[in-house]
Amino acid sequence: MRFPFSHFPLALCALLTGTGCTTTGPSRAQEVLLKRPPAVFVKERTASLSPRPAGCAVEFVKQDLTGARHTRRVARLELSGSGLDRQQAEKLLSENACRVGAERVFIESEEYGRQGERDEVEAIAFAFDTPVQISHSGILANLASKPPDCRLAILRTKQPEARYQELAGLHLKLESHFQTGGSNHQVRAMQELRAAACHLGADAVLITQESYDMPTLGSVVSGTAIVFDENLRREAPKNPDAHTL
């Protein structure tokens, strides 16, 4: 009867005594494993997004957002480490969520304080999803995102009287096969532009182009997401390296 070398002490004990043998402490391999620093592994990556700045804001949500509107599943994150707690886990998961371009994290399972074993945390990272093409202006305002249905001014003919900064250009094309009437196209377009602008932390959208129900082309809407200077001054920059406007 042959035994793997690693099992030789236990096998010898069983042959000599006719019973099984138990160990009195962790093996050398276990001790080495327990001393390894915590690590987060990115698994099941389903979207390739640009990394967000280090220290970016990440929201931990209480429910799985898979399938939610305006939400894209980015990756599964698996954290392994010794002596962890929820606060440390969130910090490590946030760092990796920023690296994969995610903004929200749902912790599926977590086990801390396991005797002789590493703590394990499994989570899912999510990002904002929109059919709107967003062309960032380059302004590093570091604005906080707002809910998709946030209060937002849609301006078509009148320019705002208050001073403002342009955050991003917005462009949306709805294919002709979607249309069930011009009014529905317009409603859908405004909902999508609003959600994208709210996500950017904007105060208003200046509409620059609206064309609905064009034969074979569908509908095209473009605009500019803006933020008023007064509100910019109220924003406390989360990144010490961000430019102050």
Rank of each mutant, 00 (worst) to 15 (best):
residue 83 G to W: 13
residue 11 A to C: 08
residue 125 A to N: 01
residue 25 G to A: 15
residue 99 R to K: 15
residue 32 V to Y: 03
residue 25 G to M: 11
residue 50 S to C: 03
residue 50 S to W: 00
residue 45 R to W: 01
residue 18 G to A: 13
residue 18 G to W: 12
residue 121 V to F: 11
residue 44 E to D: 14
residue 105 V to R: 04
residue 10 L to N: 07
residue 30 Q to R: 14
residue 26 P to Q: 06
residue 31 E to H: 10
residue 41 F to L: 05
residue 92 L to P: 07
residue 57 A to P: 05
residue 121 V to G: 03
residue 74 V to F: 02
residue 9 P to A: 11
residue 88 Q to G: 07
residue 96 N to I: 06
residue 33 L to Q: 08
residue 13 C to Y: 12
residue 122 E to D: 05
residue 80 S to V: 11
residue 58 V to S: 02
residue 74 V to D: 00
residue 78 E to A: 14
residue 30 Q to I: 06
residue 53 P to A: 08
residue 113 G to E: 10
residue 116 G to V: 08
residue 81 G to L: 04
residue 65 L to I: 01
residue 25 G to D: 10
residue 89 A to W: 04
residue 112 Y to S: 02
residue 57 A to M: 13
residue 14 A to P: 00
residue 75 A to P: 00
residue 27 S to V: 04
residue 97 A to R: 05
residue 116 G to S: 06
residue 22 T to W: 07
residue 48 S to N: 14
residue 90 E to R: 15
residue 68 A to H: 15
residue 37 P to V: 11
residue 37 P to Q: 04
residue 89 A to K: 05
residue 72 R to K: 15
residue 109 S to A: 11
residue 71 T to Q: 03
residue 121 V to C: 08
residue 47 A to V: 05
residue 78 E to S: 13
residue 58 V to Q: 02
residue 22 T to K: 15
residue 9 P to S: 14
residue 38 P to W: 04
residue 102 A to V: 04
residue 32 V to T: 02
residue 124 I to G: 00
residue 110 E to P: 06
residue 107 I to Y: 09
residue 25 G to E: 13
residue 71 T to S: 06
residue 16 L to Q: 15
residue 32 V to Q: 10
residue 47 A to C: 03
residue 51 P to S: 06
residue 59 E to T: 13
residue 13 C to Q: 10
residue 44 E to S: 15
residue 25 G to W: 11
residue 87 Q to V: 08
residue 11 A to V: 13
residue 34 L to W: 09
residue 67 G to T: 00
residue 22 T to R: 14
residue 27 S to R: 06
residue 114 R to T: 12
residue 20 G to M: 07
residue 72 R to Q: 11
residue 97 A to L: 09
residue 24 T to G: 07
residue 47 A to Q: 01
residue 31 E to D: 07
